[in-house]
Nucleic acid binder design. Sequence first.
DNA 1: GAATAAAATTGATAAAAATCAACCAAACAG
DNA 2: CTGTTTGGTTGATTTTTATCAATTTTATTC
Lengths: 231, 231
Amino acid sequence: MVNKNTFASNCVDCNCKSSIFKHLSHPELDIISNSKFQVVYKAGEIIFKQGTPSPYFVCITSGLVKIYIEGYGKNLILGLVKPVDYIFGPGIYVDNRHHYSAAAVEDCTACLIDVNVFKRLIRENPDFADEFIKRVSLQAIFNFEQVISLTQKQMPGRIADVLFYLSEKIYCQNPFELSITRQDLADLSGMSKESAIRILKEFKEEGVLTLHGNHLEILNIKQLRHISEKG
Amino acid sequence: MVNKNTFASNCVDCNCKSSIFKHLSHPELDIISNSKFQVVYKAGEIIFKQGTPSPYFVCITSGLVKIYIEGYGKNLILGLVKPVDYIFGPGIYVDNRHHYSAAAVEDCTACLIDVNVFKRLIRENPDFADEFIKRVSLQAIFNFEQVISLTQKQMPGRIADVLFYLSEKIYCQNPFELSITRQDLADLSGMSKESAIRILKEFKEEGVLTLHGNHLEILNIKQLRHISEKG
DNA sequence: GAATAAAATTGATAAAAATCAACCAAACAG
DNA sequence: CTGTTTGGTTGATTTTTATCAATTTTATTC
């Protein structure tokens, strides 16, 4: 998997001022640059599988990736990751294994950074450590909201939450071009594909959104917010 | 809430060699000792509510605490915390607010440590930072297992998972004395109180466990494991 | 551009779980 | 003790959601 397409490139040239590496100095970024390599994935390809060893900290530099848990018969998508963000495996501080899987939703490139280099920099640069802890904390808070949505809301509320997530956190625009399938939408909302389709249809009939092919536009944000909030 | 019962005591005397503070030196522990104070809570009392400011890192030194999210009409208990462990609020690295609530399940004592002192030590002692990140990572991995159980397993599987959690992680023995109510058991498993009662009854009838008052004993671990694994 | 494969849609049915309402039992206060 | 409160239990019913099967649409490949 790893040696299908590697080429050199420098972290300094990457959009790293808003990334987790924002507090690293040029020499520190060079340490990462020299120890990393870049890999290209086609849409649909699996980047890593849960349970496998995790020798790299993976940073997405282009495209779109889903991280998901393979559960009992179906997947739960924890979230989508876009550039420049990372696919943190909490396993690198525990048992050096992945605890979720990752796959390319769109064609993408990823940088693989040696975990030991990453951990050494965490120890050496408190600003970097703080930034890392901050991002892990943000992720934990997001997970709390997600688990409440998934366990306590009915299907319309869950779909509404996922649409807000996609619109606000991933595509950052409205209307937006969905590049994910109905199955992925269902796996994000913890329901069957058929149920997801039916809820989207309802939303369309109520004038909450339009949906032509991949093109999704939220027409009535207030109403969608209301659907989300009533649970 | 905070000044109902405070008294001095030293972290070095506390069982800190297996706690998050295991890598701190005596002088560092003294810094914490000097900035902290201890509070006593009676069973049922709320320690903090989600949404409130979070100026303290809270460490449980005796008793049993539940951390829970107040969702849409009902609570989801994220887990129980016993001595010596902490009620980490991911908010201290984000917005200085609690993102879940905490309440005493049994009478308990807690140490409140100034967040700024805590964060300063994280910056100054890389071993402490590593230990902290390690524990946060472990928590994240546990949360993944929990969310899969809650969203993809049916009620018997969810109750089985909660019983394993209580037996292995909290009470660390079998049989054990349950000090939680059926409502809390239901809130741990993401179901109604009535459903939790019915599943427990089923388990009893199938000879999986006995249940006299508070005293719960798992009789057939193999069968319970099987129930958990089939989802 | 025809053939094929993959994804989306729809309706009917079955399963899972919540809710409601009533009742019981243990703990507790006066 | 005795009344009261709190938590536990049960059965009946309704709601929610998944599953199954069939069909249509869209994308892909030769």
